[in-house]
Design a binder for these strands. Structure first.
Lengths: 242, 242
DNA sequence: CGTGTCGTTGAGCGCTTTCAACCCTGGTGG
DNA sequence: CCACCAGGGTTGAAAGCGCTCAACGACACG
């Protein structure tokens, strides 16, 4: 964890450019920046272990953080992949509870750490900030429920189909080609699948003409058919010849 | 859905006795009670479908609500079992998003519905209420993450063990006997297991001396051994004779 | 050209599900 | 008092799906 000593004013400046703080008061940011630190993490470097007491709110400035629950068989269940402009740790700080996941850098990253006490003090004193945070956490809870919905799908094929469908939102009316937002391994771990199964399902969908894929580029020609896959329990039929 | 026309004052009175509103201002409750309705639900009666726009915050006065995600194979993935004094729907109201689950009465129940507009107005105007709600939702997010952790366990035996361990909190230092907090069917659906598998795992744990059970009464003699089960990937070994 | 990371493919096993029948309990009405 | 029924739960047998292990391929980097 490489602390590059950076003046508060510059940290505040960086914060102002992050989507996390979009629309926040300038004075609010100034107060939050007090005692905040910026630092770098190397790929695979661990920031927090499951059960740790977090001492700060973390915001990703660049890179990516993998939040996951370590499993007894050595595997991981990815809970969230935090990209630039997003943060994590609010519920732990607010409730003073141990961290429910492990936080490891997925790439070389830069983060900002906002001191826990400062954070809580500001939260207590600013209605606007409390509201924003409530919105944020509500959003995140809904998002988590949606993740659960995906993982609850009875077959792995449906899980992947559901995931792809959920990946559409950014106006893919004309552009139906996109790239997977993370390593396939991590996506698999988020869907509760092994890397191998995820690969096989993608291959199957390609072979059946649901998608075309090269590397992490994916093209979906017919979203309706994809929706069908997500809902219908097509039992991965003979797949021999159609 | 049987609306028993009840005066606002009496609803406010009922609210004051619910743990959900513990410590809230009396005036706050009075304002929230305006436009609130109390009603009864019969066992299995549906209150909201997945995708519905909720028009109220719901608080359970008696009975139990099952919140679940319906699956394509007709099964359900229980997300939460809401008992007396708890509520649901806040994130949907706050974010104005469709309901991510289905809400059905698990038993004959009585609920209070607090009008969406009233709720949001009060939330906007009261720092205290925003804070409380933020705490509530944070708590719920952490709880949901823990549920994910349980469901992520690689074997069903570990899932059940984890679940039982998590059921301990209420000072079971002396009293290590308790009863399951819901129908086994619903617990199974919350663990992402079929009813049959859940039954088998309990039977196995009983046969191996991890627990004693009669009906929904469970006694755990050695919590350490149970912890062991939850973490170690004991692959349901031969179980023949020890 | 070696090394590390990411991903694909193949073969085999075993757990979980599914479908089925059966048991048990409590309530109801003749 | 007992027959009957509905709901909840248990148990058995069979089948399939996803995991594990392992080897291989592709690609980037130094």
């Amino acid at each position: 964890m490489n602390f590059t000593s950076i003046p508060t004013a510059q940290i505040q400046d960086t914060m102002a450019r992050l989507s996390y703080f979009e629309g926040w008061d300038k004075e609010q940011l100034a107060r939050l920046a007090v005692g905040a630190k910026q630092f770098a993490l190397l790929r695979k470097e661990k920031l927090a272990a499951k059960g740790d007491r977090l001492e700060a709110l973390y915001i990703v400035v660049s890179g990516q953080m993998r939040l996951f629950i370590p499993l007894s068989n050595g595997a991981e269940r990815v809970v969230s992949l935090v990209e630039r402009g997003d943060g994590f740790g609010e519920p732990c700080l607010i409730q003073d509870e141990p961290c429910p996941f492990e936080a490891v850098a997925g790439k070389d990253s830069h983060l900002i750490a906002i001191d826990k006490l400062v954070y809580r003090r500001e939260l207590r004193q600013s209605q606007a900030m409390t509201e924003r945070t409530l919105n944020l956490i509500s959003q995140r809870l809904l998002h988590t429920l949606h993740d659960i919905e995906i993982c609850a799908q009875p077959s792995s094929l449906q899980r992947v189909a559901h995931y792809l469908v959920h990946l559409r939102p950014p106006s893919l009316d004309t552009e139906q080609e996109f790239r997977l937002p993370a390593l396939k391994r991590d996506i698999a771990a988020k869907l509760g699948l092994s890397q191998e199964t995820f690969s096989r399902m993608l291959a199957f969908m390609a072979q059946q003409g649901f998608i075309q894929l090269s590397g992490s580029q994916v093209r979906v020609d017919d979203w309706n058919r994809m929706h069908g896959l997500a809902k219908a329990g097509c039992p991965m039929e003979v797949a021999g010849k159609n």
